[in-house]
């Protein structure tokens, strides 16, 4: 009833392009996209990140050397032929870095997918049904949060250590410790949203619980879920790198950025091209993902846009 000076009541018929301020939940896809595109750092990060993904995925197409090809140019410094140089076996470091980046990304996406799915299901069930189910699910969530995750991860990953093709297992093990924040975020969103009158309206017309959650609640919580999932990708890649660095990550013939950093670490001072390229690639990728995540958060919820974002 107040005429708040800042919020402009859109007069729809009169104003063609609605300059109104849709709420966080009300933001349509187009509006979110427009706001994201205004966020220059995030757009730049997205461009760089995509370029890096494409570079690693299609490395075979544009780069003459393969990661398993053994040349007789041993421990060469970077050159026009070998962009990042070669290692002591004569393998091309650029090709290996791209190969590692592919695998890191794969692990990151699979783990994030699994963690997001688990987190959303747990969070939605807890937030919608409340009561004892909420209590039980949230205690389990708390339990997982309080476990020293790296130690448990190492124990679990040890079972798959040095087994070829273990990256699936690694991804799922990581996912087992990456769903909790998603569950909490989803739960709190559902708790808030389920107080909305459109949910009451759906209940009054006899809509099933599943329909209300899937049709009304999750679509309106999608912003938070996507933002958190994006940030999870970066976190998961970092965890995988840590595991690989400690020797518990993906096993040969696969490699990952963490494994490459581990291999290059001993030579960091003598042959820096073995250590820095995969390391910097990893850091840049993670930065890009996090910037995109921040940009998405601001785009979905402009009121929370931080002063650091722009």
């Amino acid at each position: 009833m107040v005429d708040a000076p800042v919020e402009v009541v859109p007069a729809p018929a009169a104003v063609g392009d609605h300059v109104g301020t849709p709420t966080a939940a009300g933001a349509s896809g187009r509006v979110v996209l427009r706001r994201f595109l205004r966020h220059r750092v995030a757009v730049g990060a997205l461009a760089v990140g995509l370029l890096m993904v494409v570079a690693s995925m299609f490395v075979d197409v544009y780069y003459p050397h393969s990661y398993d090809e053994i040349t007789n140019e041993l421990s060469q410094a970077p050159s026009a032929d070998h962009w990042f140089g070669t290692d002591e076996l004569g393998k091309d470091v650029y090709a290996k870095t791209m190969r590692g980046a592919q695998k890191s990304l794969q692990v990151g996406l699979v783990a994030t997918l699994a963690a997001t799915l688990a987190g959303v299901v747990v969070g939605a069930a807890a937030g919608w049904y409340r009561g004892w189910l909420d209590g039980a699910l949230m205690r389990v969530t708390d339990l997982f949060l309080t476990l020293p995750s790296l130690a448990v991860l190492l124990v679990l990953a040890n079972r798959y250590r040095e087994q070829a093709g273990n990256w699936w297992a690694i991804a799922l093990v990581i996912a087992a410790f990456a769903w909790m924040y998603q569950a909490r975020i989803t739960r709190s969103e559902i708790l808030t949203l389920s107080g909305r009158d459109y949910v009451a309206a759906a209940r009054a017309m006899g809509a099933s619980d599943l329909r209300i959650v899937v049709r009304h609640l999750l679509p309106n919580a999608i912003g938070s879920i996507i933002v958190n999932a994006t940030l999870t990708v970066a976190a998961v890649i970092l965890v995988e790198s840590s595991l690989s660095f400690l020797g518990f990550g993906v096993a040969p013939p696969d490699t990952s950025l963490g494994r490459l950093v581990d291999e290059g670490a001993q030579a960091a001072s003598t042959r820096p091209w073995l250590f820095y390229p995969p390391g910097l690639w990893l850091v840049t990728l993670l930065l890009c993902i996090n910037f995109v995540g921040d940009g998405l958060r601001d785009a979905f919820d402009p009121r929370r846009a931080g002063t650091d974002g722009r």
């Binding site: 849709p22 939940a25 009451a200």
Partner: peptide
């Protein structure tokens, strides 16, 4: 019987901004 009852009752809420799913 419940299904039929649901059809026979419509509800309108107070808040015109909260009662319609924005998506």
């Amino acid at each position: 019987a419940l299904r039929a009852l649901r059809r026979r009752v419509g509800v309108v809420f107070q808040d015109p901004y909260g009662s319609l799913d924005p998506r």
